[in-house]
Design a protein around this nucleic acid. Structure first.
Length: 453
RNA sequence: GGUCGGAUGGCCGAGAGGCGAGGCAAGGGACUGCAAAUCCCUCUACACGGGUUCAAAUCCCGUUCCGACCUCCA
């Protein structure tokens, strides 16, 4: 995989065949949109590919339910969680709980294999406080003049290694007006613990007074605690490269005394119809929107697989519809190739996936196999099923046998007789009626057949 | 200003120095009572200017344009 820090494609490390993975998860104050899901899918694809090669994977994905945007408290006036809570007049923990369960629901619909654990910031408060104390004791952090605790960026000499940002060039003034937050010694320092100030909700007791943790510390603490202080692969969106991962790296290395993360993998952004997804552009697309259009949620997965994770990708309804059509065609084909559950190793698919996760090449290989007249059906099916272990498109899915809606059978029979009598008008009308019940009618040489729309 | 990516046919998009990915859309055909589905065919491109090479979409230099990140973000 391509490592953002060394800027090269490198082998994933492991110890005794076990790979530890960490993926920065969602802040649960709203639904994850399809762009967020692209990053979560990336972690899934890496984990599945590693497992395909026989490695054992332990994946941890955090859930931020407190503290996000704490650094920005002064500028925006509100924490995202609390703002949403206030807007909907709901307890902030209720909001977190609701969106957390929706997050899991979306992942399931996208066939993302569950992580081994989903630790929450709010449930790791003591560990975070302990880590902050340790950072203070080792001179990496200090209590600022406002009572909050800050990390001393300059105390980690290699700060900036991931993003290429140097402390000097981070000097304020280029794009943003520097707003003095008051308590810091140095502009690049960031908060580990914010004292509550006027805030009354989502605050905890700590040696420095009631308050809440900074956003970056949770990932350091959870990854170190749950993965035995070493992360082989760390996954996240490209925008987290700086400052989140830069700060996380500084904290983690200060806590463990060595390079905690071996490979930093960043997924590029997903655009929708040419523009970055944002509320103001009005082009935020949720998985539910895809489903509401009558598309299989896995059509989204299909579309995402057709692009490299390191490239910006432009998604559109046209590409989702194309993916949906091909997905259906593949499932029909796989079904027509038999019902064996055999898997067949394919060198090209294997090398495409294991060399920096080249999913488009794997998909292209499947298209070639689909058309290859010299290959037998059983082999085709076995290779498709082999690839599906990573692609996760449910290629062997057989449409569930739902009972026919009431009256549908009578309509089908009536249409069969109408066709026999060459009463085309009536036949077409009946076809329309059946369509409204969700049945698609196809006339073939052996008479009519139907399938679910 | 700093750092990093891009630029490929109507559209989306792979490209590993040398027999032109693929998909979508469109047009034509086969099959159909019609439709749908399926199959066949057609449309053949690499931002611009130099360079290296027998050979460049691919490597090098320059130019133009676009995007991302640079204390909100997946």
């Amino acid at each position: 995989m391509y490592d953002t820090m060394s800027r090269e494609v490198k082998e994933i490390s492991h110890s005794d065949g076990k790979v530890t993975m960490y993926c920065c998860g969602p802040t649960v104050y709203r639904d994850a949109h399809v762009g967020n899901l692209r990053t979560f899918l990336l972690a899934d694809l890496i984990a599945r590919t590693l497992r395909l090669t026989g490695l054992e994977v332990c994946l941890i994905q955090n859930i931020t339910d407190v503290g996000h945007m704490a650094d920005d408290f002064v500028e925006t006036g509100e924490d995202k969680m609390l703002a949403e809570a206030k807007r909907t007049r709901t307890d902030p923990f209720e909001i977190a709980k609701r969106y957390e369960s929706r997050f899991h629901h979306d992942l399931k619909r996208l066939n993302v294999v569950r992580a081994d654990a989903y630790p929450k910031a709010s449930e790791n408060m003591n560990q975070m406080i302990g880590a902050i104390e340790k950072l203070i004791n080792t001179q990496h952090a200090y209590v600022g003049t406002d009572g909050s605790v800050y990390f001393d960026a300059a105390s980690v000499s290699s700060y900036g290694a991931i993003s290429g940002n140097k402390l000097d060039s981070l000097k304020p003034g280029h794009r943003y007006e520097y707003t003095d937050e008051g308590g810091k010694r140095f502009h690049a320092d960031w908060a580990l613990w914010k004292v509550a100030g006027g805030r009354t909700e989502m605050i905890w007791d700590a040696p420095w007074g009631k308050g809440f943790p900074g956003w970056h510390i949770e990932c350091s603490v959870m990854s170190i605690n749950m993965l035995n202080a070493h992360v082989d692969v760390h996954v996240g969106g490209i925008d987290l490269r700086f400052p989140h991962h830069e700060n996380e790296r500084a904290q983690s290395n200060a806590l463990t005394g060595n390079e905690t993360v071996d490979t930093w993998v960043h997924g590029e952004h997903l655009l929708f119809e040419g523009r970055k997804m944002s509320k103001s552009a009005g082009n935020v697309v949720l998985l539910q929107d895809v489903i509401d259009r009558g598309l299989d949620p896995l059509a989204l997965r299909f579309s995402l697989l057709e692009n490299r994770y390191r490239s910006q990708m432009d998604l559109s309804w046209a590409s989702l519809e194309a993916a949906h059509a091909t997905l259906r065609r593949w499932r029909t084909a796989v079904q027509s190739w038999g019902n064996s559950n055999d898997l067949k190793f394919d060198a090209e698919i294997n090398s495409a996936l294991t060399q920096d996760l080249d999913t488009p090449r794997a998909m292209q290989r499947l298209r070639t196999i689909e058309k290859d007249a010299s290959m037998g059906s059983l082999d085709k099916r076995a290779i498709f099923l082999y690839a599906d272990q990573v692609l996760g498109l449910d290629l062997d899915r057989v449409d569930e046998i739902k009972p026919l809606p009431e009256g549908a059978q009578a309509l089908l029979d009536a249409r069969a007789s109408a066709r026999a009598a060459k009463d085309w008008k009536r036949s077409d009308d009946l076809r329309d009626e059946l369509k409204e019940l969700g049945l698609e009618i196809k006339d073939g040489p052996e008479g009519q057949s139907w399938s679910w729309l």
